[in-house]
Design a protein around this nucleic acid. Sequence first.
DNA 1: CTCCTATTGTTGGATGTCAAACAATAATTA
DNA 2: TAATTATTGTTTGACATCCAACAATAGGAG
Lengths: 132, 132
Amino acid sequence: MSTDDIDLGGLVNMIGVELRIAQILADKAFSVSQEAKMPSGHFTVLTLINLNPGINQSMLAKSMYLDRSTMVPILDQLESKAWMERRKKPGDRRAYALYLTPQGKKVLGEAGTRVGELEAIVAEKMGPQKRD
Amino acid sequence: MSTDDIDLGGLVNMIGVELRIAQILADKAFSVSQEAKMPSGHFTVLTLINLNPGINQSMLAKSMYLDRSTMVPILDQLESKAWMERRKKPGDRRAYALYLTPQGKKVLGEAGTRVGELEAIVAEKMGPQKRD
DNA sequence: CTCCTATTGTTGGATGTCAAACAATAATTA
DNA sequence: TAATTATTGTTTGACATCCAACAATAGGAG
């Protein structure tokens, strides 16, 4: 019995399930191909900080649809690699202002060039009907 | 500073990120609206067993793009609710054959009627460009 | 038949995520 | 101004998921 023999019924047309499968495939393709061992989420974080220097953690989390608390260990890791840093925000003693370090910008630049190609591969892999 | 003010750069066009956001919204809408407190994955499991009576755990996991090991606790829960059962498979002493119980079919039927409406709501919420 | 390989379900460890609670600080209201 | 409410970053606990390993069983090669 191969996977192709399974009756998916109306399930294949349910939007939630479709999206779920598509996202899993996209994530998998990304992590497999990325030799710079950076989770896809970390790459997104670096990109957003680069585009929005001084952004705080809550806004960053919101823009990625992640919880604030989820952001904390991610930023801890990126900061321990010295790819970005938390600076105290002038005018709000609760918040941090996030900035990429020079090393962070360098890493982001190198990884970024590969992502364009990868997206094309993922799009191809999903097939035309799913991508559309 | 609202979320709308964040510069997403080319990120919005990256397929992986788009899918991720779409799926999160879909899942959230599903779980919020579902008064029968069943995670969306559990609903999918019941549907697939219903459509493929006697399917084994590995095939089920494969068809949902989940690991075999992930399936175990899900089935444990569904079985403890007496919504489906593991029967010994004749001819293969390693595998289980999965079947819905009468209660399981009843629950699935009730939940199923609501899902159609929900999918439409999710599609609406995402907006036409994202859905397409 | 006998060995070797593949498959099935399971466990345990690692990671990613969320939700709830918290203290510190900011913003709003009375 | 004083009191209340909201926000920020963090910790903790609960899940979901993956991967690697395992024992039991099945299938194939010799």
